[in-house]
Design a protein around this nucleic acid. Sequence first.
RNA 1: GCUCCGGUGGUGUAGUCCGGUCAAGCAUGUCGGCCUUUCGAGCCGUAGAUCCCGGGUUCAAAUCCCGGCCGGAGCACCA
Length: 517
Amino acid sequence: MDEQKVLLSKYSFESKVVQPSKGEKVLPPLPDVEKYGTVVTRFAPNPDCVLHLGSARAIILSHDYARMYGGKFILRFEDTDPRLKKASLLFYDSIKEDLEWLGCEWDEEYIQSDRLPIYYEYARRLLEVGGAYVCTCESGVFKKLLLEKKPCPCRLLSSRENIERFDKMLDGTFGEGEAVLRIKTDLEHPNPAVRDWPALRIVDTKKHPHPRVGSKYRVWPLYNFSAGLDDHLMGITHIIRGKEHYTNMIRQKYMYAHLKWEYPTAIHYGRLKIEGGVLSKSKIMQGISKGLYSGFDDPRLATFKALRRRGILPNTIRQIIHEVNIKPVDATISWSTLYSINKKLVDPIAPRYFAVFDPIVLVIKNFVEEREIVLRKHPNLDSMGYRIIRLTPEDDVIKVYISKSDIELVKNANVFRLMGFANLTDLVLKDSVAEAKFHSFDMETAKKLNAPLIHWVPVNDCINVLMVTSEGSLIKGFGERGLIEAPLDSIVQLEREGFARVDSKQDNTIKLYFSTR
RNA sequence: GCUCCGGUGGUGUAGUCCGGUCAAGCAUGUCGGCCUUUCGAGCCGUAGAUCCCGGGUUCAAAUCCCGGCCGGAGCACCA
């Protein structure tokens, strides 16, 4: 009866002790491991929003420490506020998707809204042992007494009377706001916030139905009660959570004392921010409902969905979290650090292609030869294979797109080179078209002449490229034909432009999300 | 205001518990060079910190003690 049946345990954890890969920072040892023998951690989100970088410390550290010691990692949904922080069905799944993407698979899953009977049972037990009471004082009155370190009249009631009162909470005699179950603490505690804290309250679930259990229950536990009980009942040995919960630990310890339980090892970390990244649940939710952001994966947001769509790899996030580790200080990570890690991971797997944005047509006159340019997909990795760009002259002329910004680079050079193809000279601008003459083919000449190198795309053999920038805007350009073959969700490098993730493809058009330079 | 917790180069971090080998390591970023048919990756070098400030203990302090300043968190019938 104490333990709720595990909803799901599709992952066995015995086999998954994680070996840190070379070069990656190794996590420092977790305290108190020998005390417990095994390590059990949990991630306990409220499914009222998507996950973002702010939760990354809790998720990755909890998961990775569990794996490091061959322990257990539990996912627990804390959806016990049907009114103010109401959960939404869609987020339960979205959180699980994000966890899977991050490679943080959980061994057990619980949902607190399924566990109300358990909370009621412990509420009764606490009432019985005199560790709690049902308070019917008006909240202002109670607060005043609390600040004066004085007990309210309800505190003196017998456990029998308290249990009767608790039944009245459950059966509807008391309405919303009329009674609350409080845990007895030390009224002399220097921090008023820990004195006799509320554990269960009444929510009018007719008005505010819970997304999973509707109006089945009207008495709902508050955070410290349900989380505190569950941490013990689920055998959590190490709680890794934000420092905003520090006082909650002190509060919960009083409840543990009434129940004669030992509190797990709790570690509190500081807030993790990223330069300019939007990391507030309320801002994310508001921004989306106002249409300010295109969705939970808008590239301006620091949600996992957005990072993923931009081609940030889960291991990049993992490395960053291992680097910042658990410290009570706030950390602001910079995009350049994140990019640098990501680039190192992505560079060896990203094939290279040409794509031109803000294009201008360059005409190479008197060129009659048909050519097939063979280029490596990766400059240092032959194994990645080759790509072919076909150049077919029309009316004795070859037309390619080059980037307007490259005109600046090239216009003062006697000779410049279209990468992989040919060296050109005598550049002139006519109307909105550039013209140049063929000079030579070989790279040696270009080197000797110190010719600038630019990328290009044949006009008569190219695809359309749409790219969503990191600011969320859409830019259009042209790409070499072979780019269309890049698989969905893969990461490519557009030479001299940067890395991008293949988001979708249709006919002759590929849509990319810009990742990093 | 009250109760906690912190403060190491631009950013992140190591070292702080058990004072000396730390006028402080690493990563990223800056700048310069090499390499390269990419402005990517790689390689080499450079600059950048009086370890928040003041006092004390000590032969010796980033490390211990006290005071100050600054920053963060909590003070919901939220999580």
